[in-house]
Write a protein that binds this DNA or RNA. Sequence first.
DNA 1: GAACCGGCTCGTCAATTCAT
DNA 2: ATGAATTGACGAGCCGGTTC
Length: 263
Amino acid sequence: MLNLSCLVASVGMEGMVEENGTSGGAGGADPLAGAGAAGPAHVVAVTTMQAPAQVQSVIQANQQSVIQTASNIQSVQLPKGNVILVSKPSSVIHTTQGTLQTLQIKPEPNTLMSSQGQSCSDDSCSDDESPKRKYREMLTRRPSYRKILNDLGGAEIAVIPAGALQAEGGLHTLSVSGGAGGGAIVQYATTNQDGQFYVPEDQTRKRELRLLKNREAARECRRKKKEYIKCLENRVAVLENQNKALIEELKSLKELYCQQKTE
DNA sequence: GAACCGGCTCGTCAATTCAT
DNA sequence: ATGAATTGACGAGCCGGTTC
């Protein structure tokens, strides 16, 4: 885990905060990263001091911050002294220079901090800036959807109820309840009368348990991926609207300028 | 109706990361 | 070091639309 004080220091220096971000999908197989030329986009949960509501936001490099709530969409200008609380360890925040003055990051209780141009102490950064570590992070795959979106809520991974495993002669039936796809029955042979291909029952049960867990994990992963994509699509809509408004503004300003010039 | 196709979902495997 | 968690990749199956 990168040390957060190092990241906060970069806010004052460059107007940018980055923590555990992907390197634009360089190493990981991320079909979603790099969709925009501006850099990695991450979803963060943001709370402002003035409007303490939980919102979801995707913030992109070299762009004005767009903070998007669950109910409506709003772009937010951050005056001096405002605080953004970022509860996602894998968040990336890029702002226009000078807009973001103070930042608090609270992935863990002990790491809460605020800073403007705070420098990074050697103690806190030495371990995380080794070449080996940096190289590993270059190759790391994208942050998990859980990290990106775990504030969006959703279905819990189903817990196997006690007694779900039951023996039925030569076959074992594993009843699975819950989950988006409804119930499922998995059957598997455990014995062979000729003594061939014998698989110890304990191992077979372990395998079934692993498959069940992975099945649920895959469902959850796909759900998170869908939400992530939905979030990106929302952001596209927001930015398209912003772009349209800016073009209109530019147009009217140009007209005004030409008008004054001719007078 | 049969055959084909494309899109979608799901389960599984394997590689990788994370947590202890 | 090790087990758990995460997620990309792959194949199978289902479904609706299209063509013959």
